[in-house]
């Protein structure tokens, strides 16, 4: 996987999925590898959109519905011949209830709604920082400040050097790419 690969997928106007795991499962590797042509991330992206169209709602799928759909697919895969080895974070803005939401899913398809979450080594480096500094009423600016603390910590303490981060912000107006 290349360093500058974007490991996120936009699922709909207010829903973004970030993933990490086996390269083949994310859809980044040459398509002929592993199983099938379309791998999980792309499969989910397409199917969330399809599912949204089929249920002919005027509104797009809510983050909670998207996360349920993704979980079901991941759970199906878990007991299949070759399960996806993929950990996910789904961030979204519930435009109906006017609330931002974050879902944590691991490759076993365990799902939980959390105020802040991480996967892989970032859990060990960042969760304590988030435990200390996050509280329910922070605004975007404070959020980004805490994020910066997390990334600085990763930069300082991680044995291997990671080549930068992609930061995307989801608000009620949609998803924006942030210069970082």
């Amino acid at each position: 996987m290349k360093a500058e690969d974007d490991k996120t997928r936009i699922l709909n106007d207010h829903c973004l999925m970030a993933y990490s795991g086996e390269a083949g499962d994310t859809g980044m590797l040459t398509r002929s590898f592993g199983r099938g042509k379309v791998q999980f991330a792309e499969f989910i992206q397409a199917n969330v959109q399809l599912y949204g169209m089929r249920s002919n709602c005027t509104q797009a799928l809510s983050p909670s519905s998207v996360s349920s759909f993704v979980r079901t697919e991941l759970a199906k895969s878990l007991r299949s011949r070759k399960p996806y080895n993929l950990n996910l974070l789904i961030g979204g803005y519930d435009t109906v209830n006017d609330k931002p939401e974050l879902y944590w899913l691991d490759f076993l398809a365990a799902k939980d709604k959390l105020p802040y979450a991480a996967h892989g080594y970032a859990q060990y480096y960042c969760l304590s920082i988030l435990d200390k500094h996050h509280h329910p009423n922070i605004d975007l600016e404070q959020g980004l400040k805490i994020l910066r603390m997390c990334i600085e910590e990763l930069d300082r303490r991680m044995p291997m050097n990671f080549k930068g981060v992609n930061v995307k912000v989801i608000t009620k107006t949609g998803i924006q790419d942030l210069e970082y």
Partner: peptide, 8 residues
Amino acid sequence: GLATDIET
């Protein structure tokens, strides 16, 4: 037990 199965 296993969280994923609790949900399922």
